[in-house]
Write a protein that binds this DNA or RNA. Structure first.
Lengths: 281, 281
DNA sequence: GTGGCCGTGAAACCTTTGTTTCAGGGAACC
DNA sequence: GGTTCCCTGAAACAAAGGTTTCACGGCCAC
């Protein structure tokens, strides 16, 4: 007696295109499957009711009801769906790594109150320009944040550009702008002077750095401590990326809330993202 | 607009005996409610279908369907998970974002068994050369992974380099090498052909992509599904970075375990990292 | 082109679910 | 006892859900 996902994987290769479509939908919504009936499944996956019916026959079920019964039995016999039990007990490398990441994320996001985040997001949304500074190991995070932010608002620059010195990039900053500084462990030494300079010129700074760097957090308008701890030599930037995503999404919604100006562009963005999500027809 | 349990409690006193029986059953099986339909509810609670129907009318629902919709919406927007206690009570943006990240991380790392990870890490450690491919939104992840891996072993290239086509970078690959492909949602279309080509030439591929991209996972030697789901338009690459860190650390330890050759370099690395950790005296 | 094969959904079909109607019956009050 | 009230489920009904049939169309082979 196999379970649904086993059967799906076993038969996946031999399924027809539409059946595969349904199978994909099921695998993508496995946890919620119990709440759908066959007709909804057809509607949501974009296939017809007959196709859904045939799929389950092909997988070896007598009918949709048999599947429901299986799912329910599975659910009641305590399958841990989306929580940590699957990993918590093990002492494998992935399990311990997972534990560490949970701790990092918690520390990063628990110390974060919504109003401070909102304030920073509002500033990012309304700033004249946004300059993101990230060097060495912070560079991928900075790059990523820029990729996201540039879609929520215009005029987001990344510094230093190759062939430019940082100083050149900073000259035209005003208190109406916002600078995002990503500076994690093993950062260049010029970070502290840089922050001091910006502070003196009253350019507001959003700072991402590890929580231990207290000499920097004092120098920024909105410091966001990001724990990087990992089990071994190499730090994990998961929490940093998580925060980047949170920020970008918050800015997007601020932009929606604040100005009507970019709404068209933003709805375009949504369409665009939706469209691109299924790249191959 | 109230939720079901609020309504139940508010009306409980004024319910008739049979209705109360149904209400009790609902409150006892609240989490599983979504999987029952109205007829089952009647059977299991020991009332008749009309009684169930009347109960929901009395609670202010237009019909059973309205209730289903409410339950489903509730389920999708933030199920309180097990270990979220520090944040779970709030319904702020950071709290919900945190919940989503937990789910992503769990899904990313729960499907990961230590042996498969070990195999991939061993291959990365012993490969003749490692080529990392990541474009667009995968580029920051690829860049980060390269920064980490290059410290655990030599000959880790990133492609495509500016001004180079991908084809040029691929010509000299052999089955002794390993290619890491990072290709997330909205990836370039050439990814599938690329993977096919590498497979045909028996170059082993470690693939990072979102779990929905089943057309790609079938083409890689070691597929690692990485969920990117976030609350809003922009994906979160936290799990991707987490996996990168895990991989890099695993490779480092493989390198330590496998060959004595690089041990000096690696202890140097450790010293180096330790030294740099406190940059200012 | 012709024939065969297969995937597909419209439509027809039974089945089950969900709601409404209605008659029985118990309790309370006159 | 009679009246009224309301709870209750059987039965009838309407409305979905689920399955089967069938014709269309694309595809490959010959």
């Amino acid at each position: 007696m196999q379970s649904l996902d086993e059967r799906l994987r076993a038969h996946y290769q031999s399924l027809s295109p539409q059946e595969r479509r349904v199978a994909d939908f099921i695998l993508d919504h496995y946890d919620d499957l119990i709440s759908y009936n066959s007709a909804e499944l057809a509607r949501l996956s974009g296939a017809s009711k007959p196709t859904v019916s045939r799929l389950f026959k092909r997988l070896g079920y007598s009918g949709y009801k048999a599947l429901r019964d299986e799912l329910r039995a599975l659910r009641q016999s305590g399958v841990p769906l989306a929580d940590a039990r699957t990993l918590a007990d093990g002492d494998t490398l992935p399990a311990r790594h997972y534990q560490q990441e949970l701790a990092n994320l918690n520390r990063c996001l628990a110390g974060l109150d919504a109003t401070r985040l909102g304030e920073a997001a509002a500033a990012l949304a309304t700033a004249g320009q946004v300059l993101i500074i990230g060097q060495r190991n912070a560079y991928p995070v900075a790059l990523h944040l820029r990729q996201q932010l540039i879609q929520a608002r215009g005029r987001v620059r990344l510094a230093p550009q190759p062939g430019q010195t940082l100083a050149e990039e900073l000259v035209d900053l005003t208190p109406d702008d916002v600078v995002v500084v990503a500076a994690f462990r093993r950062r260049p030494r010029l970070m502290a002077p840089l922050l001091k300079n910006l502070k003196q010129r009253q350019v507001p700074v959003l700072l991402l750095c590890e929580p231990e760097a207290r000499e920097l957090t004092a120098l920024a308008r909105w410091p966001f401590p990001v724990p990087l701890d990992s089990l071994s030599a190499f730090d994990s930037y998961a929490a940093a990326m998580s925060l980047a995503s949170l920020l970008a999404n918050a800015v997007l919604h601020q932009a929606l809330a604040v100005g009507r100006r970019r709404i068209h562009e933003i709805t375009d963005l949504y369409d665009d993202l939706g469209e691109l999500e299924k790249p191959s027809p």
